[in-house]
């Protein structure tokens, strides 16, 4: 102790790092803190497992349309000539209409994936939302951040990076990884090209969802002065907005987008535009034409049980949430 106390002060003459390194330090320490629980890791593994499931689906589909794949041989042995004919047709369609048969499959799968996103996001964010800003406000650590070589925007960017990195595992990671794996395992690498539009749609939806939900998470975390309150605010906010939206939508359908979940679902439908896909399939592929014809008792697209979804209003709602969140959070984190 005596020796430690008599330690001399030595000046530091090293080279400093830039502001982005400081922001990343906030993100790195924050991620370490947020991911310290076991339950959150389980949910993140579940979210990541979606990538494997999708990759498996894409792999099997790729094998089905490959002329000489082992899977096709096995199915043909199992089902005989009828199966052979059906899959030969599928292979031909895939070659003739890749925008329907390849891109369409990716589009449908990524669209289905978007249904799990809001639920997983709500659970995962609830597990760490109190560790974002509420912790710093409750412990006065915000004073330390503000007294260092940082502005409140640097702090916000650091915190935003934490949430967005975690939510990317739910929204963007499965899309990108399954697209990569699915195409790497596909019989024809032209699938990379044909499925690229679906990747873009999936990533666009993922980015919008990640950004808007991250802003909301920061807002909720900054409103709570006690760490426990942040979790309660997040869950109650999520549920109450859904209830309010569903009640208010009776007055006007646009009120449905008060709920971030509904806004994301609608945006997802608007981005993937499955009705357009079905219409194209109807027109190009006789098999699908008759199939959908039977489903809708006619050829009128409005009779089909799917729609293209709204883009503008949900995007406006999510954008408004982002603006409000940034405005409130930036005020709250002033020391």
């Amino acid at each position: 102790m005596k020796k430690a106390w008599s330690a001399k002060y030595r000046r530091w003459e090293g080279e400093g790092v830039g502001v982005w390194a400081r922001r990343l330090s906030i993100a790195r320490y924050g991620l370490k803190l947020c991911l310290s629980g076991k339950i959150i890791k389980i949910f993140l593994v579940l979210a990541g497992a979606q990538a494997l499931i999708l990759s498996g689906v894409f792999f099997f589909y790729g094998q089905l349309v490959a002329p000489e794949s082992a899977l096709l041989d096995w199915l043909e042995r199992l089902g005989g000539e009828q199966v052979r004919t059906m899959f030969s047709a599928l292979t031909s369609w895939a070659l003739l209409y890749p925008e329907i048969c390849v891109d369409g499959i990716y589009r449908i799968m990524f669209y289905l994936l978007s249904f799990s996103g809001p639920f997983l996001s709500m659970i995962i964010v609830a597990l760490f939302v109190h560790r974002l800003i509420a912790n710093d406000l409750a412990s006065n650590a915000i004073v330390i951040y503000n007294s260092k070589a940082l502005t409140r925007w640097d702090y916000l960017i650091g915190k935003f990076t934490i949430v967005s990195s975690i939510l990317s595992v739910v929204w963007i990671f499965p899309v990108v990884v399954s697209w990569l794996l699915g195409n790497l395992l596909s019989p024809d690498w032209s699938f990379f090209y044909h499925s690229f539009p679906s990747l873009i749609r999936g990533v666009v939806l993922g980015v919008i969802a990640v950004v808007s939900l991250s802003c909301l998470a920061l807002l909720v975390s900054s409103l709570a002065k006690k760490t426990g309150a942040a979790v309660a605010f997040w869950i109650l906010g999520w549920i109450s907005l859904s209830v309010v939206a569903s009640v208010a939508s009776f007055a006007h359908p646009a009120f449905d987008y008060v709920s971030p979940t509904q806004a994301i679902y609608s945006l997802s439908a608007g981005i993937f535009r499955l009705l357009d896909l079905v219409m194209d399939a109807q027109g190009m592929l006789p098999f699908f034409g008759s199939f959908f014809g039977r489903m809708s008792d006619g050829m009128d697209p409005s009779d089909l049980p799917i729609d293209n979804g709204e883009v503008f209003l949900p995007l406006l709602a999510l954008g408004a949430y982002c603006v409000i969140s940034i405005a409130v959070v930036s005020r709250r984190i002033r020391a």
Binding site: W12, G14, E15, G16, V17, G18, A21, R22, S25, I26, Y29, L33, S36, N135, D136, A138, S139, N140, A141, V143, I144, Y145, K148, A149, L150
Partner: peptide, 23 residues
């Protein structure tokens, strides 16, 4: 008091150094 909950002493001071622009 203004520490970051959950951090040990040397980690906290290291973090503050990084926030001030040190590698």
């Amino acid at each position: 008091d203004c520490h970051i909950p959950g951090m040990v002493g040397c980690e906290y001071v290291t973090y503050c150094g990084e926030l001030s622009g040190m590698p």
